[in-house]
Design a protein around this nucleic acid. Sequence first.
DNA 1: CTTGGCAGCTAATTTGAATTAGCTTACAAT
DNA 2: ATTGTAAGCTAATTCAAATTAGCTGCCAAG
Lengths: 203, 203
Amino acid sequence: MTTKQRILDEALTLFAEKGYGNVYVGQIAEAVGIKAPSLYKHYKSKQDIFNAILDEMKSRYDKQADALNMNGSDVNADANIFSSVSEDELVKMGIGLFSYFLHDEYVCRFRKMLTLEQFRDSELSLLYTKQYVDNPLSYQSAMFAMLTVGGVLAKEDADVMALHFYAPIYMLLTLCDRQPEREAEALKILERHIRQFSKIYQP
Amino acid sequence: MTTKQRILDEALTLFAEKGYGNVYVGQIAEAVGIKAPSLYKHYKSKQDIFNAILDEMKSRYDKQADALNMNGSDVNADANIFSSVSEDELVKMGIGLFSYFLHDEYVCRFRKMLTLEQFRDSELSLLYTKQYVDNPLSYQSAMFAMLTVGGVLAKEDADVMALHFYAPIYMLLTLCDRQPEREAEALKILERHIRQFSKIYQP
DNA sequence: CTTGGCAGCTAATTTGAATTAGCTTACAAT
DNA sequence: ATTGTAAGCTAATTCAAATTAGCTGCCAAG
């Protein structure tokens, strides 16, 4: 990995832990293993580093969204997959989503950073909401719409079903961001949540 | 209101918007209507102001928790109230909780501040989790346990019911913290959530 | 009245973080 | 070989924010 990338990487780690305002360029440099003034060979200011992180992040997100079909209403293509989903598969899906958000090297640090900077400007608010609220909800809403039509689940409002399915995942995720030591506990209740979800939405 | 209190008040507002590290004592002073050095007649440092906010906050919380019985397992006292709760009452309860958290002058600013400082030290993590996750969940879990015994709702795992009821409220709350302009929309989906919750947990 | 101390002010002072200047080395291309 | 440039360093410089010093006016207790 090039120095220029390592700077972004270490800066992201620090911003995610302490927030932009509480991180000094000297700390970033030290983490990278160079002296502070050398940072300026790569970026013209601290803010510039932050912006570069944002840019990289946006481009990664677009790719990832395309890959996972989490962006558009492209779920129809997967209609066949969704036409039969067992309770166990729903559990695996929920835990998979949770674990990915919680442990993915990049996604996880980026989410924490956004958490700390979300009130600073409206671009960041929008980004946070899109990534962790609106997109997951609309994707899952489309999925549950399939599943109800397919007769796998009861015919209830799919938007609300998505909320019932996803909001607990989201809450447990933010809990584990704060207290990673509670992950095991979170996973247990998460599984109980999904099994009960599956039961109460039985057609 | 005394100057000493006004300092805490304005500081809290600023910390909630920008985060501790991005607020300058001069801004706090200006908001109060005095000069920065005068702050030091009341608090010995910026950090001291922050600590005072935390202290005040803790004491307020203890009082409020006692008042609302949101702390202990004191729900049993209210068993009679809970033995018959209609869907409309559940809606009112959920929206009431949401609106209180979102609009209460003090609670709201304090939550935003905690959001921005939550990763800084474990005391703040604990506090956040207790106030916005563990306590609401355990209170509602106790409530739903009542309601299932009373035959008002289906006999399912009350912890998970609490999660299903509260997690959407929590998620919509953090959404509105970021994007207050979406409150009306949040309230609509919140009501749909609770009505559907009530329906799927019909005994 | 007069005095003590609270709460404010202006004017330093200190501190420390961000950035710039200017030098050095390595190495790749001519 | 020479030269140009990328990427590092140390040593300034700048600048802003936190805090301290020391003065003033007010007013309440004696």
